[in-house]
């Protein structure tokens, strides 16, 4: 069961990587960036394999899904703002052009979000201590 779940994630990853490779060869930033955001979601799910295999897939789905959806919204928003009048705008948000403001404020929050979710979803089952101080004898 666990093997098959990691296999399925790897097959999805392989498809996304193939798409990214095509995007790189075509020099298309959208075909690189958007599949990559899905790779982020798949990577997060790899961290939850044991929990999903134990029948608890709601939290992993929410964590990976929320991160991916929010990243998509943010980058599409920046894409739209940059598509019109990317740099010559006379409107300013916190002293920055709108696209810059969305990027500068939004991206740091989103890149920190998965780390926050990692801590918040850390459960008692994740806690372990070393079985014995096998490293005491060293090798030196």
């Amino acid at each position: 069961m666990r093997g098959s779940l990691s296999d399925r994630l790897v097959y999805v990853l392989l498809g996304l990587l193939a798409l990214i490779l095509i995007g790189m060869l075509l020099a298309s930033w959208r075909v690189v960036l958007y599949p990559f955001l899905l790779v982020v979601g798949v990577s997060i799910l790899f961290g939850f394999i044991r929990r999903i295999s134990d029948g608890n897939s709601l939290v992993p789905a929410l964590v990976a899904g929320s991160v991916v959806v929010l990243f998509f919204i943010l980058f599409i928003w920046v894409d739209i703002l940059s598509g019109g009048e990317p740099t010559g705008s006379t409107n300013y948000v916190f002293g920055m052009t709108p696209a810059m403001a969305v990027y500068v404020i939004g991206v740091p929050i989103l890149v920190a979000l998965p780390s926050l979710l990692y801590a918040l979803t850390f459960t008692r089952e994740d806690l372990e201590t070393p079985p014995a101080a096998h490293n005491e004898e060293g090798g030196g």
Binding site: A27, S28, V39, T87, G88, T97, M100, V104
Partner: peptide
């Protein structure tokens, strides 16, 4: 922002003078 914008408008954008393609590669 306005000083950079006056010299080169791209410098006031999130990607500066770097292409979005390069930024996407960097991000990965």
């Amino acid at each position: 922002t306005q000083t950079l914008q006056a010299e080169d408008a791209a410098l006031a954008s999130p990607f500066g003078t770097v292409s979005a393609f390069t930024i996407a590669c960097y991000f990965l």
